Amino acid sequence: MSVSVFAPISIGNVSVGFDTLGLAVTPIDGTLVGDIVSIESLSTSASSQEDSQFVLAGSHADKLPSNKNENIVWRCLAAFNQALSKQSIDIQPVKITLEKNIPVSSGLGSSACSVVAGFVALNEFYNQPFDKMTLLKLMGALEAEISGSLHYDNVAPCYLGGLQLMLDDPEKITQTLPTFDDCYWVIAYPDIEVSTKAAREILPDSYDRKTLIQFGQNLAGFVDACYRKDKQQAFSLLKDVVAEPYRKKLLPNFESAQQTLKEYGCLATGISGSGPTLFAVCDNLETAEKSQQWLKQNYLRSDEGFVHICKVDNSGARKTN
C-alpha cells in the first residue's frame, strides 16, 4: 500500500493579521508549488518502527540536512507513531519520502508544508485514525518545536485550505473566512534567505497603544469586510503595522516594488510571513500579469527566484494518488 499527499504554500499574516491570518494559494498555471510526502509499506521482513526508511527528493532537497533524524518529516513519523501508541494502534514500518519543492526560509510556509503533508499522509495510510482537530494539534506542536512558538498561521491554511483566522481557543483553533474569488495573488520569491528567527528578532519587544489600536481596527474591519464581500474596504485595510515597518529593510527593493505595484493597480501588497516573498493582490488578470513581469525583472535576485500568479487554494492538503 502507498499514499501520497500534496500540501500547498501559504501566505502567513496576510499583512493585517500578524500570527493570526493565513491564506493557502496555488498557481493558476497548475504548477504544484508545495511539498509532497509519500508513505509506502515495507516488506514483511521489516518488523518494527526502527526499520522505517526515509528518502529526501525534490527541487530543493539540497537545502535540507541529509541526516534523517534532523528532518522534520522524520520527526512527524516519530510524533505520529507516539500518538498511535497512545491509542493502542499497531505501528507499521514504512518508507516515508519527502519531495521538497519549495525553498526553505521563503515566507511561504515551507516547514508547515512538510509537517502538514507528513501528518496527512500518515493519517491516510492508517485509514484516518485521527480527526482534523487532533491532527491540527499534532501539526501545531511540531511546528512550534521548529519556530520556538505555537502559531498556526501557515499550518492551518496549508492543511484546511482557504483563508484561516486563528482563535485563542483550544477547542476551535481556527475559523475559515470568506474570500474574494475574483482576486489574483501574485507571489514573488527573490531567492535570498530570511530566517524566521532573524525576522522575529528584528521586531520590538513591545508596541505603543496607538499601534495596538490600529492593528485591532484593521483586522476587525478586514474580517467584517470579508463577510460583507466589501472588496474595497477589505483591501484598503490590508496594512501591516506590526512587522512590515521593521522587516521591509530585509527585502530587496521592497518599497520601490510597493510603489510600482500600486501604480499598476494592485489592491494591496505585503510581505508573506517573515519574507522575503512579496505578495500583491489584483482583481483582474491583466494587472496580475503586468505585475508578474515587473517583479521578474526588478525583484528577483537569481534564476532560482520565481513569480507565480495564484488563486486561493480552497482544498488544502490532498492526496495525489
Rank of each mutant, 00 (worst) to 15 (best):
M1R: 12
V5I: 15
P8W: 02
G12L: 01
N13H: 08
L21N: 01
G22V: 06
G22M: 02
A24F: 00
T26L: 07
T26R: 09
I28D: 05
V33M: 09
V33I: 12
V33W: 05
G34L: 01
D35W: 02
S41Y: 02
S43G: 14
S45W: 09
A46G: 00
Q49C: 04
S52C: 07
S52M: 06
V55S: 05
A57T: 15
G58W: 08
S59R: 12
H60K: 10
D62E: 14
S66I: 14
N67A: 13
W74C: 04
L77S: 02
A83S: 11
S85L: 12
S85C: 09
K86Q: 13
S88C: 01
I89M: 05
Q92I: 12
Q92L: 14
K95V: 03
T97E: 04
T97Y: 05
E99N: 15
K100Y: 11
P103L: 15
P103F: 13
G107N: 05
G109N: 04
S110R: 02
S111H: 08
S114Q: 07
V115K: 01
F119Y: 15
F125K: 04
N127E: 15
P129V: 06
M133N: 15
A141W: 04
E143S: 11
A144H: 07
A144D: 10
I146W: 06
L150T: 09
Y152I: 06
A156V: 08
A156S: 14
C158P: 08
Y159V: 00
Y159L: 08
Q164Y: 13
P170Y: 00
T176I: 05
T176R: 11
C183Y: 10
Y184G: 01
Y189M: 01
P190F: 00
D191N: 14
D191A: 11
I192A: 06
T196K: 01
A199L: 10
R200V: 09
Y207M: 07
K210Q: 14
G216F: 05
F222M: 08
V223I: 15
D224H: 15
Y227A: 04
D230Y: 02
D230E: 04
Q232H: 12
F235K: 00
S236V: 04
S236F: 05
S236K: 11
K239C: 03
K239H: 10
D240A: 03
V242Y: 01
E244N: 05
L251D: 04
T260H: 12
L261M: 06
K262M: 10
A268D: 09
A268R: 01
G270M: 02
G273C: 02
G275E: 07
P276A: 00
A280N: 06
V281S: 07
C282W: 09
D283N: 15
D283T: 06
L285D: 03
L285F: 03
E289R: 14
S291L: 09
Q297R: 10
G305T: 11
K311Y: 06
V312F: 01
A317R: 01
R318K: 14
R318W: 05
R318A: 12
K319N: 14
T320V: 15
N321A: 11
N321E: 13
